[in-house]
Design a binder for these strands. Structure first.
Length: 354
DNA sequence: AAGCTCATCAACCGCACATCG
DNA sequence: ACGATGTGCGGTTGATGAGCT
């Protein structure tokens, strides 16, 4: 037997809210608050609505200072950066955008931003496939001075119109006149500490959002890392003890950096001789392997399935990172290489699998 | 003008977690 | 410790309107 329903479905109104219902709910909450019990609230005010429905209506529509539509480019960037970093945690993303609701952001992402990032699928397939056939095996995108603004942006793997040209995203650091909760790495640390879940260290295992993989040893006191411990990030996601990119950055700079993660259809990012390479492999998930100080640091990437989906794979190349002008590229880089020593990821190279 | 397709977004659903007795 | 219940969240649905043929 399942759990009892939260309300009497037969006597509960569904569908769009009328102005009268809105007014009732709004005036009651403004005068008395929610009373800490959404389930009981509709009965108190004579609304034939489910308590959950009242809560949703209040949070997403009636609550003061709600903004609808008209997302700014800056908001786009924040959403993209956070999505790349933490995935579809809309409530967390919404918390960084005052006046925005998780539902709004979710809808905006699904209907507009996703398409803006990924472009027209049909045109993309056509263009990239035909183009990539003509390309040689190697393609190097060099950025000797900056991770965020690759110097050579003249890649011809994908035509420019393919990915929208966006202004450079200045990582996750925002100016002081913006939301103070999100304007420095300390704040990002706090944000990350709030996240739990994907970044949690439950049972010393790597916690993946879909539970698709659970690797890591049991009690691993030898690998105790105070910085990572404070961040609640698993310092050793790999069974063999290979340090993660996150660990690397914390060690190298005592700085905050975190990497998103991604299990993608048969695609893997590997590193080779001072380059980060993106290689499609027959098995495994998406991995990021960073070279720094002559050491390689593989790292699993979860949460970018959408961005690196199967249709992004063209002749064994993963498309989105190919164009350094693309929003997704910049979001990815700004999120993943925050605080990383520059020499660690100064180049991207695309190679074909032998 | 009618019919169809597609985009948008409010609202619903079900699950997981938190809290309480 | 455990079950019942409330809350929060993310995924999904469906009504509606705009645009196209």
């Amino acid at each position: 037997m399942g759990r009892a329903p939260c309300c009497d479905k037969a006597n509960v109104k569904k569908g769009p809210w009328s102005p009268e219902e809105d007014a009732k709910l709004k005036s009651y909450i403004e005068q008395h608050g929610t009373g800490g019990n959404w389930i009981a609230l509709p009965q108190k005010i004579g609304l034939k609505r489910c308590g959950k429905s009242c809560r949703l209506r209040w949070l997403n529509y009636l609550r003061p200072n709600i903004k609808h539509g008209g997302f700014s480019e800056e908001e786009d960037n924040i959403i993209c950066s956070l999505y790349v970093s933490i995935g579809s945690r809309w409530s967390v993303i919404a918390a960084q955008l005052p006046g925005r609701t998780d539902n709004d952001i979710k809808n905006y992402w699904n209907t507009k931003l996703k398409k803006k990032l990924l472009g027209n699928k049909h045109r993309k397939d056509q263009q990239s496939r035909s183009k990539s056939k003509q390309e040689g095996a190697n393609r190097i995108i060099t950025s000797p001075n900056s991770l965020l603004v690759p110097e050579n942006s003249t890649t011809t793997i994908f035509p420019q119109p393919y990915w929208p040209l966006m202004p450079v995203i200045p990582s996750l650091q925002y100016s002081s006149n913006q939301d103070p909760s999100f304007n420095d790495q300390d704040s990002i640390k706090k944000l990350l500490m709030k996240l739990g879940g994907r970044f949690s260290d439950e049972e010393n295992g790597w916690s993946s959002p879909q539970g698709s993989h659970q690797v890591g040893s049991g009690d691993d006191h030898d690998n105790y890392h105070p910085t990572l411990d404070a961040l609640n990030i698993n310092p050793n996601p790999f069974p063999d003890g290979t340090p993660s990119c996150t660990q690397l950055v914390c060690e190298e700079q005592s700085n905050i950096a975190y990497s998103s993660s991604c299990m993608v259809n048969n695609d893997t990012i590997v590193n080779n001789n001072n380059h980060i390479e993106l290689v499609a492999q027959e098995t495994g998930g998406l991995e990021e392997i960073v070279l720094c100080n002559n050491r390689t640091y593989p790292q699993r990437l979860d949460g970018l399935e959408l961005l690196f989906g199967e249709d992004m794979l063209v002749n064994d190349k993963i498309a989105p990172l190919a164009d350094p002008n693309s929003l997704i590229y910049q979001s990815f880089v700004s999120s993943n290489y925050q605080g990383m020593p520059q020499q660690c990821a100064s180049e991207l190279r695309f190679i074909n699998r032998p």
